[in-house]
Write a protein that binds this DNA or RNA. Structure first.
Lengths: 210, 210, 210, 210
DNA sequence: CATGAATGAGTGTTCATTCAT
DNA sequence: CATGAATGAACACTCATTCAT
């Protein structure tokens, strides 16, 4: 009758029980495909391979589960690196191509779409996602640019603005048609061309002449 | 006995019965605030000031009502004009500032957000909206640019790409934080500054030197 | 200002305005096909070629309209006649074949089915229909049989029972499979055979020997 | 306070969870009283003592629940037995009285009525019910008759037809008035008289003389 | 009288959530 | 802890009925 529970370490309060992982993975899949409202807890349970009840052991409600997914998404955001040994054009091109390939791959825009969709009703979620992922990406670039400015290789007044400009230019003709389902994912060649054009424009304006 | 009534037909088949307008207005409000799934027909009826049943007299189902809203949104899309008597920088600045003021005003991004959110499940709606509104806007600019190229005032290889680049650059640091609720609507001053920077960069690259 | 209404005879209180007829005809069609609950007033209005509102000018509600249909159905019930100049077998055969052909033709069982379906919830309707149509048909036969008994041509104790027996025997293997959609409407040949067998059995039992 | 519960599995996948039984019982009651269209899922839930949602755990929709009821009704169809040691008249009388007592008892015609009512819109349901219940009953009798024919005790050409004739004759003056609510359930005495008359007529025609 | 626009109670169905086991 | 049966509030949608014209 006495039950000695030696298994204290596998309690769900642990941040990463395998069950919790399963749920997060299943939930991401469903939420990203169907959006917050379109996703049902039943579907999520099925995708995660757990019972519906278990969902509520780890997350208080649908919203909390969704927030956890988005939160995680912000932590897994890809870090872009810049190689100081290579020239600016190469670094910008590498960054631009990697970024566009990432967001314009099938499913690549799901998180952006899903979070943007809910941002009005869950402003905190929207803001956190923007700050960590989009602004994070841009900040990465901002920091790189600032370094080049300090090294006298670029002439930029507002590096943050410049980073945002470059970030957006790389998407020209690519991201919006893709995410609105007006066009399929762009080919690597098309991406190269667009990013090359962005790099050219960027350096034409911010490059140090001579 | 004589009754002068030029609007004798109160039939719902009329394209613009006041009831139909009421419904469209109420529905737009609710759909744009809550998204397709988040909006309920009851809420829409309340917002429109009609009964739930009446909704179904004018629209076969929720989807049809939503599509009608989006359709209308594409028709009310603002047309941007370019004045051939003014110089390119002025025209670009005017376009950029008007566009950003439009989409970054409170509620200005709702349609984009709402349609983008549903684009995966309703690809036709997404595509039509993109084609008519976003591409429509860009095409407007493309045409203008092409004219200037032919007039020898600009040196652009791919005018469509250039238009998209400008269109996106104008949004730098503004639209994404706004739509993700990370920042409030930008001030006219901030818009001016960002658009001015975009114009500068655009002309630095595509302007004809001399 | 004075309006002399000479058209007093076409008011809806008249038992047979053409509008009333139209409605009854449309309603019969729809009720008989879909049953009381399955039929909608909208469908009936469409079938009758009048507006929904008009339905309520002539009938207080759906139930009253249904009752009027059934009532009418009882009045249009076919009268079967027996020819005293022909022999009993011929008369019974004629009656049997006519009756089965009537109820086993496509749509012929609709009234029976529809009224039977509602009889528990509208007992008056069920009883009246039974009394007037089914019992009416049997009474017709009963009267004929009674005449033959009095004429010494048949030996029947309970003529009503005998009439009902004959009425049912004629349906053997035909009506139930037909109305349950287990078999299509029987061929005239099959009907002949079954009725002939019923006549034979009937006379074998009730016929006067010698 | 002590609860003995040997049925520890409360899973709905079990073919006969008590909940499933409860639902079937409640649904039968409501469907048989009000018909398919007249019955509402809410009413059924109330009658079954479960929530509306639970209905959908066990049955995919209203139609499936209805079909399950009818299916079950066909399986519970009474089997009639004939005792070879007793004479034909006794066997026929036993069968006839049992059958009429069954279908003319209060509620005894509900299934027939309900299924017949829906047969046009759900032909499969109608056909299956007819085949299994009505034809099943008649086949039972057919088989018995065929045996007697082979034993030289009856002279019947078409045993199926003869069985159907007997089956129907037993109902004479009883079933139709009962199901149309024109008369209450018949007394055993009345049933006896009618069945006796049917047996007499049947043997007068098909009996072997001598 | 005839209309059909409008209603709102009601329908079948789904789903986030709870809880006994 | 994990389950999944059970719930009930909410949903999209239908329809008998009303009423201004």
């Amino acid at each position: 009758m006495i039950e000695v529970d030696q298994n204290t370490t596998h309690a769900p309060q642990d941040e990463d029980t395998s069950k919790r992982r399963q749920i997060l993975d299943g939930a991401r899949e469903v939420f990203m495909e169907l959006g917050f409202d379109g996703a049902s807890m039943g579907e999520i349970a099925r995708a995660a391979g757990v019972s519906k009840g278990t969902l509520y052991v780890y997350f208080t409600d649908k919203t909390a589960l969704f927030e956890a997914i988005v939160e995680e998404e912000t932590r897994t955001a890809v870090l872009f690196s810049f190689d100081p040994d290579r020239d600016i054009a190469t670094n910008l091109t590498g960054f631009g191509e990697a970024y566009i390939a990432l967001v314009c791959r099938p499913g690549g825009g799901s998180a952006i779409r899903t979070v943007m969709a809910i941002a009005e009703r869950m402003p905190d979620v929207g803001r956190r996602y923007y700050d960590r992922v989009l602004e994070g990406t841009i900040n990465c670039l901002t920091t790189y640019l600032r370094g080049r400015v300090e090294a006298g290789q670029l002439a930029i007044d507002d590096c943050q603005l410049a980073a945002s400009q470059f970030h957006l230019m790389c998407q020209a003709t690519l991201f919006l048609p893709f995410i609105f389902q007006a066009e399929p994912a762009p080919s690597p060649e098309r991406i190269s061309k667009v990013v090359a054009s962005a790099v050219r424009m960027f350096l034409a304006n911010y490059g140090v002449k001579g």
